[in-house]
Each structure stands twice: as C-alpha cells, then as structure tokens.
Simulated assay, not measured.
Amino acid sequence: MSREESLQPFIDFIRELDKLKGVERKTRPLGLARFENSAEHSWQLAVFALSLASFAPSSVNLQRVISMLLLHDIGEIDTGDMIVYATEGLEQRKLAEERAVKRICTMLPANLSSSFQELWHEFEAAETPEAKFAHAMDRSIPIILNLANNGQSWRENGIRCEQVIARNGPPVETGCPALWAYLRQKLDEAQSAGWFGAKEKKEG
C-alpha cells in the first residue's frame, strides 16, 4: 500500500465530519441571525474545557476530556440535533446516534475506530471524572449563550427556568461545581428579566 493510499481513510473520515457543519442547533451565535451548528458547538466546548482546566478535579485527564468533546456529537451527522429538553423518543434517538457513530468511525483503521467509539460511549455513560467534566461543559455552553442572547432559544422554544435547572443543574454541578454556582445565580437574574418561555416546550 502506498503512503497516499494509507492516508485515504483519514481523508474520507474528515470529509464525512465536514457534514457536522450543516447540523443546525437551536442557539444563535452571539451577534448573528443564523443558528450555530454542531461543529461550532463541539469546538467551543473543547476550548471552554481547556480554559477551565484549573476548575477540573486534579485527577482529570484534560486531553481525554477534549477528545470526548470533539467527538461527542458526530452521530448527529445522521440523526440531526434535538434540543436537550425534548425527552420523548430519547432512547431510540440515542440508538440511532450510536449506529451513526459506528458507521463514521469504522472509516478509520480498526484501532483508532475502537478508540473513538470508546470515547463516545464514555461520554454517554457520564461515569468517569473526565466524562462528568465534559458533560458540565456540554450543558453549560447553551446556558451561557442564552444568557448573552436574552434567552433567545429559551423564549423561542418555550423553555421554562425550572426546566433549565432540572435538566442541566445535576450534570454541571457534578462535573464543575464552581461553574454551576455561577450559572445558578445568573439563571435567577434571567428569570427576573423574563428571558424564559411561558408556554410548554416544543420538540424539534
């Protein structure tokens, strides 16, 4: 096998990942009218984790955290993104996402494919210190953007303050207690400002 041929699986993989740039989420980037995409979201999480290294438990392998965050949403290439507050059909969506992750990762050589799938499963299980810290990043960034956007996606999707706290509080507080203490105070201020939806949440 030539050197060029040995590179082809990696080129195919990265070209497939480019599709993540077309997966729309529900939050708008600051100052822009369009919605963010899942590739932007993953990049921002990884940089946030790197920035908050001093708030992570001392035992956390930060490189593993960043690797998880860069890979955790690649299954959305096939499934699309679903707002975190939509819980109906969650099990079926996760199974579909798992199949997508396997499809995409098997483009790579077997050892790397297994490693990437392992990282995805570790993130989903949220049991290791690394996965818990990664989850804290994942759940906090949409809150941070909404706080800067006057509750844009909360208002547009009818999301109430108690939903945000119930869905995001446990994983953020578990993975990065100082971050949740900060966000919890800001959420109270956002509620006073009327930045949450008053109606029932909508899926999609």
Rank of each mutant, 00 (worst) to 15 (best):
E88Q: 15
A49H: 03
D73R: 14
E200K: 09
R28V: 00
S42A: 15
R28C: 04
Q63F: 08
F123P: 07
I11G: 05
A53I: 05
F13V: 09
L112T: 12
A86Q: 08
E203P: 09
N149W: 00
L119S: 11
R93C: 04
A190H: 10
I144E: 06
F55Y: 05
W195G: 01
P9C: 09
I11A: 13
Q8N: 10
K201V: 07
K26G: 11
E189V: 11
G31C: 09
P57T: 00
R167L: 09
A136S: 13
I14M: 14
R99K: 15
I14Y: 14
R99Y: 14
E24H: 15
R28P: 00
F35S: 12
R139T: 03
M107F: 08
P129D: 13
F55K: 02
I74M: 11
A181S: 10
H72W: 03
A134D: 01
I104F: 01
R25L: 11
R64Y: 01
E189G: 03
K199E: 14
T128P: 08
F48E: 01
A193W: 04
G204M: 00
I144C: 03
I77D: 13
R167A: 07
V65C: 10
P142Q: 03
V84N: 01
A125S: 14
L183S: 08
Y182H: 06
P57C: 01
G158I: 02
G31Q: 10
S2V: 09
R167M: 10
F10Y: 15
S59R: 07
R155A: 00
S51Y: 01
G194Q: 07
K19V: 12
D12S: 12
C176Q: 09
A100G: 15
I66L: 05
E24N: 15
R64A: 05
V172F: 09
K19W: 15
W154K: 00
Q44T: 09
N111L: 13
C176S: 10
I14L: 15
L62H: 04
N168D: 02
R25K: 08
D12L: 10
F13W: 06
G204C: 02
K26C: 11
A56T: 06
A46F: 00
R64T: 05
A53W: 05
S59L: 11
F13Y: 11
E40K: 04
M107E: 12
I104T: 01
P177H: 02
G75N: 08
L30R: 08
F48G: 00
D188V: 04
I159Y: 05
Q8C: 08
E4H: 03
S115F: 11
M68L: 04
G194R: 11
E24P: 10
A126D: 15
S114Q: 14
E127A: 15
A148D: 06
L70H: 06
D188F: 06
E203Y: 12
V164G: 07
V172M: 11
C176P: 10
S140E: 08
Y182V: 01
M68K: 04
A193Q: 11
A46W: 00
E122L: 08
T79E: 13
E16K: 15
P177K: 06
